[in-house]
Design a protein around this nucleic acid. Structure first.
Length: 773
DNA sequence: CCAAGGCCGGTTTTT
DNA sequence: CCGGCCTTGG
């Protein structure tokens, strides 16, 4: 709103003085490196920011600096994050720095929200209306199931869920149906490309896009309309990207298109915190930044403000085992603190018991530490099924806890149903929403009538609601169903005009819809224990809706932001996955379940071999670096997984931790070898003793670790083509050209000087290290 | 069309 | 052990 603020400032000396004081306030307390990251404004810049080095601070100070010094207007800065939380935090900090609102910064947001914004502006160029809906996974699956059965593919062998995985992969790589690589086309029973095409056509008719399209379509828009791209080049004078290590190929391409304009792109990231490879993130992007953006500068933030030296030491010793790194060494001014503690338990429930007891002690103050509040304590697990044991234990002990990133509000059935009613009322084209609630509450529509309508819709190339109308008019349905359907459709027409009627409040219309459709009634008459809770949730939904001006805005909001802010309550212990913990910090961190196969996860290693293991190791690194003062790693000798007891070996990561930063707490059970599992908790708590690395238990454990399961070497052409497998100067072999020396690496094109042939640019996937021949 | 029971499978998850 | 999905029988 208040954009002019910045333009007027130079006219007024007093204000100028204020401005420079303000500048001091957000630059003065930065360290030299951070300052360099803020003040290097021209050309491509990569900021390698280790955990806890003030990354967000530097990033936001940079934006404030650009605006305050007049390098850019607030609306000329594109700042992209991955999560809404990060975007929100960025906004708040900038506001704090600039002392004004950031209303005038339309281009701060997640990749997807910015993609959606661009797409809405130019929807017609890509055969969409600008009020298109954004599908969720449920909708996508429903649509895919239809298409798969239509193609007469056996759904058992080729589940829609698998196709969704493929689709994701394709869109992450910016492959449209026509641009699919040869070896992708015939995936999924030979019909991959065909279904992809059908899917996109159907989406277009439904006036819908999926999440992948929110990145993919803007890329296409920019590639196909050079004048449009020019426009955006003019708008985006400065580009900033947070968590660059998490970008996938599509996101990278989009950024590169925009960056071609002013070439002022600043990416912040940490290759050691890249933990989303499994969903398409390419570490390659950050590793080859300097190659991708010529003339770039790299600034490393290595001073850590978060953790004690022992915690940092343990984390660095671990991450050193990774081979593909840009290399950073975190250091700190913080003086001595607790060593990282390591403890073994007989089994998972003993582990849960011990941690529960330990948390109680910590909350009263123990071992010379000040008492910790529960909200200073967190428990980070590899997989969410591990949480249950702790929740059960904490409930028994009466310890308050919260699960972060648990089942999300907008993913609940009743919420989705309600939203489907709203969506179908707003847009008659939204066939997937209509289909969802057609028989909810029961209106007598089963598979058969549903199929009839769907086939009709596809045949006539119309939305499901129009097809329904057609079916009624042409007597395609039993009279009873026709009457029901007719009633429903006229309801939707009325609800639609109610939403458009400005004299009616949208929340009231929404409530009315839920009542008139019989949806509320449906839950009221249901006797299951959770029915009451569902009705509560519906009320919550209406409350959330009240924050918005109209239904359209609300729907846009929730399709992009899948969470509801939870009110702050009494202090609680935070339980979450390691993935969810990225970006957070806690004084106390518990890291249970460090057992080979669980963490590192066997599946990760099976699927991606060494690269998978390295990603797991980064995850471990993320875990340890969350801790500010006190970090406890634990593992159990026996664990029940899917109700089956398994003997477990300590995680290989434990052996990689530097001895001098670790203190071993050993329970009587001596690494589980002779404990009968009945040990009494308090006894364990009181009798753990501090053992050196030479205890018999430790030696046994170590020797077990050496028997680590072999890692399968998987040759995935896409993955193994990362240039980091090769370095300049190494000797490689090529099937046709023989041996040669690497001279230059450019993403996956590698220039090789062959011994018996001219130098050539070769795709990385065709080269092997000389040792591997 | 629907409710009840059998069977299979089961990381990480944001937008 | 749990939840989702499919089959089966009313």
């Amino acid at each position: 709103m208040d954009i002019d603020n910045n333009n007027n400032k130079s006219n007024n000396l007093a204000e100028r003085a204020i401005v420079s004081r303000r500048q001091l306030s957000f630059i003065a307390d930065l360290n030299l490196k951070q300052r360099e990251a803020v003040e290097t404004i021209n050309g491509p810049l990569l900021v390698l920011a280790g955990a806890g080095t003030g990354k967000t601070r530097a990033l936001t100070a940079r934006i404030a600096y650009l605006i305050d010094c007049g390098y850019a207007k607030p609306n000329q800065i594109l700042a992209v994050t991955f999560t809404n939380k990060a975007a929100q935090e960025m906004r708040q900090r900038i506001e704090k720095y600039l002392g004004s609102t950031v209303e005038g910064m339309p281009w701060i947001g997640t990749f997807h929200s910015i993609g959606a914004k661009i797409l809405r502006r130019h929807a017609e160029l890509i055969k969409l209306k600008s009020n298109f809906t954004i599908l969720d996974t449920d909708d996508q699956l429903r649509l895919l199931k239809q298409l798969i059965s239509l193609e007469k593919i056996d759904e058992k062998r080729w589940p829609a869920r698998n196709f969704l995985g493929l689709l994701d992969h394709w869109k992450n790589n910016a492959w449209t149906p026509d641009r699919l690589p040869q070896d992708e086309i015939n995936k999924f029973d030979g019909k991959g490309q065909k279904i992809y095409k059908l899917y996109q056509e159907r989406l277009s008719i439904l006036n819908s896009v999926d999440f992948g399209d929110l990145i993919l379509f803007p890329i296409l828009l920019m590639q196909l309309n050079s004048d449009l791209l020019d426009q955006y080049h003019k708008i985006f004078k400065y580009i900033l990207v947070d968590e660059y290590q998490d970008t996938n190929v599509s996101q990278y391409l989009l950024l590169r298109l925009f960056a071609e304009g002013h070439r002022n792109i600043c990416c912040v990231g940490d290759d050691d915190q890249s933990i989303y490879g499994w969903r398409g993130a390419e570490v390659k992007n950050i590793l080859s930044f300097e190659k991708d953006f010529s003339g770039s500068k790299v600034v490393r933030l290595e001073q850590n403000y978060r953790s004690t030296p022992h915690i940092l030491g343990a984390a660095s010793s671990l991450i050193k085992a990774n081979s593909s790194r840009l290399g950073k060494e975190l250091w700190t001014n913080i003086s001595e603190g607790e060593k990282v503690r390591l403890i073994n338990h007989w089994d998972g429930s003993e582990e849960a018991r011990w941690i529960g007891e330990e948390i109680e002690s910590l909350s009263f103050g123990t071992r010379g530490m000040k008492p910790f509040s529960y909200n200073q304590i967190s428990l980070l697990v590899r997989a969410s099924f591990q949480m249950r044991a702790f929740e059960e234990r904490f409930i028994q002990l009466g310890l308050p806890y919260k699960v972060i990133g648990g089942p999300r509000f907008y993913e609940r059935k009743e919420i989705r149903d309600a939203l489907a009613y709203f969506r179908a009322s707003i847009s008659f084209d939204d066939g997937l929403a209509f289909e969802r609630i057609l028989n909810t509450p029961k209106r007598g529509f089963g598979d058969k009538s549903m199929q009839l309508l769907n086939e009709l819709a596809r045949e006539k190339n119309m939305g499901l609601m129009s097809a329904a109308k057609f079916a009624i008019d042409n007597d395609k349905l039993p009279t009873k169903l026709s009457l029901e359907l007719d009633k429903l459709i006229s309801n939707f027409k009325r609800w639609n005009s109610d939403f458009l009627d400005n004299s009616k409040k949208h929340t009231e219309v929404a409530e009315m819809i839920l009542d008139e459709s019989g949806y509320t009634q449906m839950w009221q008459s249901e006797k299951t224990p959770d029915a009451a809770g569902r009705l509560e949730n519906l009320k919550e939904l209406i409350k959330a809706l009240d924050e918005f001006e109209n239904m359209q805005g609300f729907l846009e909001h929730i399709s992009l932001i899948m969470e509801m802010e939870t009110e702050k309550d009494i202090p609680k212990i935070s339980i979450m996955t390691l993935h969810a913990a990225k970006g957070l910090e806690f004084p106390v961190v518990f890291l249970p379940g460090w057992e080979d196969g669980l963490f590192p996860s066997q599946r990760s290693m099976d699927q991606k071999g060494k690269l998978g293991l390295e990603e797991e190791r980064r995850l471990a690194h993320v875990g340890i670096t969350r801790a500010q003062q006190y970090c406890v790693i634990s593992f159990a000798s026996n664990r029940r997984i899917f109700n089956q007891w398994q003997n477990t070996m300590p995680s290989r990561f434990i052996n990689e931790l530097s001895e001098e930063n670790i203190e071993i707490l050993n329970s009587k059970s001596d690494f589980g070898s002779y404990s009968n599992g009945w040990s009494n908790i308090s006894e364990i708590d009181q009798t753990y003793n501090h053992k050196s690395y030479n205890s018999p238990g430790w030696r046994r454990m170590s020797s077990n670790v050496h028997k680590k399961l072999p890692i399968k070497e998987i040759v995935d052409p896409f993955v193994s083509s990362t240039p980091n497998n090769f370095i300049i100067g190494s000797r490689v072999f090529h099937q046709k050209f023989g041996y040669g020396i690497i001279k230059e690496i450019n993403v996956d094109k590698i220039r090789v000087a062959f011994e018996k042939s001219e130098p050539k640019d070769i795709m990385a996937s065709f080269l092997v290290h000389e040792d591997d021949v």
